[in-house]
Design a protein around this nucleic acid. Structure first.
Lengths: 338, 338
DNA sequence: GGCGCATAGGTAAGCGCTTTCCCGAAAAGC
DNA sequence: GCTTTTCGGGAAAGCGCTTACCTATGCGCC
């Protein structure tokens, strides 16, 4: 690889001058020298070593993002929002997938710190794991102590700036809707119980039941992976365990799609015999059959807000922005069968 | 931020010793000193500056990946394959989205070179744009000249190692199937015509028609965005332009889903009145209604192969691996109506 | 007991770049 | 005509780390 020194030599100038023309420094350089440098750059196909540059400049401009999985539509949307603001402000994003592994999350915090990121954004549910939470908070605090900024999305355990989707409210909305439709035998197919998102959504659901003087028994909740396959599996289990079930509440759209697939394969009509609801309102929710009744979360907006919080210093730490959930009625829900 | 020097000072050792214990150097260090260093690291919450490290070590271990959009399921799958091999080999992946912008692609090649990546992988259709292709090839050649490795996925314009999905064959399979079902009025909803993937798939389709002594008129092809909305739009246009249409060939699954949505909204039964086919076999293809007949491409495998090519020096440049396409029959296709 | 050698630790030279500071020459001012 | 500015360019000091090389021990050996 050609270096700056090579370029300077070939152009017959000092490295300082070469650097100045290459970076468009404010310091003026004579046209002739400029020309010679440009020429040398082209001939040598010189590309500056990013590491050397970053080291020398010591300006921290990149932003680190830790999500569960970018290819998960939920995070794809959130990331889109993050990206938009980052691009506007000329920030590079370094995106890391934790695949819901707390260990890996911790590692990535270190890694990103090592990358000298100006800010760190953690998106995605937290864990019911005090030991981990303490560790993470401690690491984040250490990072903030050196001037780093932190913002989290959908995690209440962290003390800094946060954007919170109204998961509990969303659960409540679904519960209320189903109860209003006359459903009483309601099953829940949930993501891993260790995730706060899972428990928050269930809490909302329970609140809706409680408001009617009803309860949602724990046996009606089946935990599985937060994806299509988890939905298939959990729905199967639920159907076997709870005779007379008239509604399946999936805690995200992917699981709902799995539920739909399983119900179809068993020849159970939706919503005539069983209603199904999703959560998140992913783009495909309207394309499955029947189109999914679900809870819309402003995912892109969440990303936008989080990045804005992270990039705008903010006088008071611990700003929390809660974004509302909204019920979207489509065709997968109907009155409970008599 | 604490530096290595700070750690060394606090532990009362030289930076060299500190570095050795932190990196687990092969050079032995007395337990007591080791202990002191570890202690200092913990107290100062020291994290090595990745840039300084990379600069000093000058080992290129990261691999750059340029895709159109990771959140697009097609690339999500490919990336999964890339990731798998990279992780196995202890390589870090730097993923960049070009959003199908050739300009941005060029920029990312530079950026990744600057990041000192050991290899570069370009995934996703090439462009019918000789000027761009020349420019890109030239940049890649420059990169390879300095010892970088390059592998491309689904691009024939580059001379180096390549993994090619059988796009043309896939098009042929769809065409043959539809013709066998008696369809004659076939419309195509295609991605941007500037993409080689688009034209390759159409070429296969045409070959199938030609095999029967038929032709696929250009007016039966409608170009639009390679996504759901593009599918909606193109299908609408096609329906208006071609009366008596009995089949819609979408050039990817996302467009097919858009087609399904539009046909449903117009009350046109699939496959009774119009058959629809997709391409790629995304996971959701089986969850839409009717389940999509499509062409399966081994996306994950493509990623695996490409990363393997990139990481294994390979004696002969220009290795090309073609991966077969396979027709998956589901419920969105049926005999042409009489 | 003196020699040599292995061995743990330190010294310092970079890695490739940016940027401050300084110098010389030309332009401006009297 | 001489001094004072101004201004373009270069020398060199880092940025934070790794590592080759060197030094000072302590040991075994004859």
């Amino acid at each position: 690889m050609a270096t700056l020194a090579d370029v300077a030599r070939r152009a017959g100038v000092s490295p300082a001058t070469a650097s100045r023309v290459i970076n468009g420094s404010s310091k003026p350089v004579a046209d002739e020298l400029r020309e010679r440098v440009m020429q040398a750059v082209a001939e040598l196909r010189y590309v500056p070593n990013a590491y050397a540059q970053l080291l020398a400049r010591s300006d921290r401009t990149a932003v680190g993002v830790i999500v569960h999985d970018v290819s998960d539509p939920y995070f794809a949307e959130v990331t889109r929002g993050l990206q938009r603001v980052a691009t506007e402000r000329g920030r590079l994003l370094i995106i890391c997938n934790s695949y819901r592994d707390p260990e890996r999350e911790l590692e990535y915090v270190e890694l990103l710190r090592g990358q000298q990121v100006a800010a760190l954004i953690l998106a995605g549910s937290g864990y019911h794991d005090p030991a981990f939470t303490t560790l993470l908070n401690e690491k984040l605090a250490a990072y903030e102590a050196t001037g780093g900024r932190v913002a989290v999305i959908g995690r209440h355990e962290h003390s800094g700036d946060a954007v919170m989707p109204a998961n509990e409210d969303g659960g409540y909305l679904v519960g209320r809707e189903l109860l209003a439709l006359g459903h009483r035998m309601v099953g829940v197919i949930a993501g891993p119980r260790v995730l706060t998102t899972t428990t928050d959504r269930i809490a909302g659901l329970r609140r809706a039941f409680a408001a009617q003087g009803l309860t949602l028994p724990e046996e009606h909740i089946c935990y599985a992976g937060f994806d299509r396959d988890g939905g298939v599996q959990a729905t199967g289990a639920l159907l076997d365990a709870v005779p007379g079930l008239t509604a399946v509440v999936a805690l995200n759209d992917q699981m709902a799609i799995g539920a739909l697939a399983l119900l179809r394969s068993r020849g159970i009509a939706v919503p005539e015999r069983v209603s199904v609801t999703g959560f998140d309102d992913m783009p495909i929710a309207r394309d499955v059959t029947p189109a999914l009744t679900t809870v819309r979360l402003p995912l892109v907006e969440m990303g936008v807000r989080a990045m804005t919080l992270a990039l705008d210093p903010g006088t008071t730490g611990g700003r929390v922005e809660v974004l509302a959930a909204e019920l979207v009625r489509r065709d997968s829900t109907g009155p409970a069968p008599a």
